[in-house]
């Protein structure tokens, strides 16, 4: 059995969306507590790993939250320019989550 599984096979919802005009927020939501706890233990999603994945300095991650009531890991990125400025290609911020789908999660964690 593979030691790693992609995050998309463990999470129910992986999404991104504007949080106001200067930020995009990312939600990774699990249906069961066990998967949520496993991903947290694996450290697959941390400020550092997310900054590396998106090739941004950690200072652009304004919030990183493990939200127990929603079985969710949530982080928020500051945009380089406000939403909808000329040259912004995702006014709603809704297609920025795709790289999270393939994040490998260590099942032995």
């Amino acid at each position: 059995m593979n030691r790693y599984r992609p995050l998309s096979e463990l999470a129910k919802t992986i999404r991104s969306k504007n949080a106001g005009v200067d930020k995009i927020t990312f939600d990774v939501i699990f249906t069961d507590r066990a998967a949520y706890d496993l991903v947290r233990r694996s450290r697959a999603l941390t400020r550092e790993s997310v900054a590396r994945l998106y090739n941004i300095p950690e200072s652009r991650i304004s919030d990183f939250v493990e939200y127990d009531p929603g079985c969710a890991i949530k982080f928020t990125i500051l945009r380089v320019r406000p939403s909808g400025s000329p040259g912004d290609s995702d006014i709603f911020g809704s297609q920025q989550y795709a790289p999270l789908l393939d994040v490998p999660v260590d099942l032995s964690a």
Partner: peptide
């Protein structure tokens, strides 16, 4: 559901709290 209502608290917000 508990999951859908709790989950909505984080929608479009940088903090769910």
């Amino acid at each position: 559901t508990i999951a859908s209502v709790a989950g909505h608290a984080m929608y479009e917000r940088s903090s769910p709290f």
